[in-house]
C-alpha cells in the first residue's frame, strides 16, 4: 500500500493507505481526529470541511494520497493552548450550534471566508455558507457568530491559524 506523508495541524503524520482511502477516512480512522464529521458523503453537506494548503475543501471528496506533502488543518488545530479560536468562541456565545454535527465544517468554512474577507457583509456570509448544511436549521445564529468573530478578529488579530 502506498505510504502518504502530510502535515496535519502542524505535525508531520504518515500512514499506509489504499489509494481509495478518502482524506476524511485518513483523518478519522488512521489519525483518530474525529472532529471532522462525515454527513452526506456526497460533497454536499460540508460537515467534513478541512483546510488543504490554506483552502477549505470537502475531505470526503479528496483522496488521502492526493495530499502527499500537503498542509492540512482540521477543527482540532484551531484552539491554542486550551483557548478556543475566536470563531469557536463566537459559535459558543451566539448559540451558533444546536446538535453540533455541522459545526466543525461550518467553522472551517468560515475560517477561509474570514481569511479572504476580514469584514464580510451578512449576505456575503450567507452566500459563502452555500456548501454547509445545518439540519437543525440554525443558520441565523451561525451567521451572527461568524459576523461577531469577524469583528473580534479584526480588533485582535492573531497569527494565522
Amino acid at each position: 500500500m502506498p505510504r502518504v506523508v502530510m502535515r496535519v495541524n502542524g505535525k508531520e503524520v504518515s500512514g499506509e493507505v489504499e489509494p481509495r482511502t478518502l482524506l476524511v477516512e485518513f483523518l478519522r480512522e488512521h489519525l483518530g481526529l474525529t472532529g471532522t464529521h462525515v454527513g452526506c458523503d456526497t460533497s454536499q453537506c460540508g460537515c467534513c470541511v478541512v483546510h488543504l494548503d490554506g483552502r477549505s475543501v470537502k475531505s470526503c471528496t479528496v483522496l488521502a494520497v492526493q495530499c502527499e506533502g500537503a498542509e492540512v488543518l482540521t477543527i482540532e488545530g484551531l484552539a491554542r493552548n486550551g483557548e478556543l479560536h475566536p470563531i469557536q468562541r463566537a459559535f459558543h456565545e451566539c448559540h451558533g450550534l444546536q446538535c453540533g454535527f455541522c459545526t466543525p465544517g461550518m467553522i472551517m468554512s468560515a475560517l477561509e471566508l474570514l481569511q479572504r474577507h476580514p469584514a464580510p457583509t451578512e449576505p456575503q456570509v450567507r452566500a459563502w455558507l452555500e456548501g454547509n448544511l445545518c439540519r437543525c436549521t440554525g443558520y441565523h445564529n451561525i451567521v451572527r457568530a461568524i459576523l461577531q468573530a469577524a469583528e473580534e478578529m479584526r480588533q485582535a488579530p492573531r497569527p494565522a491559524a
Binding site: G46, S56, E112, E130
Partner: peptide
C-alpha cells in the same frame, strides 16, 4: 459553480 469548497477543487 457549486459552492466555495467545490470551487477550490
Amino acid at each position: 459553480i457549486g459552492d466555495p469548497q467545490v470551487r477550490n477543487r
